[in-house]
Amino acid sequence: MKDLACQQFQDTVADYLIRHQSILDILSKSQEANARVNRAVVKAVTDCGCVSINAEKSPLPPDASLSDLKQLRESHLNGTLCTNCRDIIERELGKSLFYLTALCHSLDLDLADVLQKEQNKISTLRMFNMT
């Protein structure tokens, strides 16, 4: 069964693809949007400081099992996004989703199908899905 929210979003994106109908435009705008997401996260750390990154190599015991890895690994992220940073990152993620959806539309792919297939793969492979 089709996901109504995904279908509505994909239809709306298709309606507004006026300037960026070329697959080349969509690919370059998608890459730009993803870079803006990364930049917004970096700015939350470097300009605002609401979150910080404390990254170092995580020690792994030689006898650690695959299921232990989830508890042994961490995000290296400390703190919580402030309202302003959260809004900016959500806005940038929205643009990134727009161009991902535009790519689906241009290639005649259904966003809901793509999401469902990925969900099925993840739930089937579970922790062995190391992509």
Rank of each mutant, 00 (worst) to 15 (best):
L125M: 08
R91M: 11
N38S: 13
Q31N: 13
L103V: 04
L93D: 05
D15E: 08
C48E: 00
C104G: 06
L17A: 06
A14T: 05
E118L: 11
R73E: 10
I89R: 00
S28D: 15
R91P: 01
K70Y: 08
E90Q: 11
L60R: 06
V114P: 02
N78W: 08
M127N: 12
V41C: 03
C48D: 01
S28Y: 12
P61I: 00
A33F: 05
S58P: 03
D68F: 01
D3Q: 04
R36M: 11
H76I: 01
E32D: 10
K43Y: 02
Q119E: 15
I26C: 03
L125V: 04
D15F: 04
S67F: 06
D15P: 00
S75W: 00
I23K: 15
L109E: 15
E56K: 15
K121M: 10
Q71K: 14
D108L: 09
V114K: 03
I122L: 15
A112L: 02
R91T: 15
L100E: 13
C104Y: 10
C104S: 13
R39T: 06
R126F: 12
R39M: 09
I23D: 13
E74M: 05
D87M: 10
S58Y: 01
I26K: 04
L77N: 00
K2T: 13
L107M: 15
T46E: 08
D63A: 10
I18V: 08
V42W: 03
Q71L: 07
G79R: 06
D63K: 06
S123N: 12
S65K: 07
L81T: 06
A44S: 13
N34Y: 08
D87G: 06
S67Q: 10
A102G: 02
I18S: 02
S52Y: 04
L69Y: 06
V51H: 03
T46D: 12
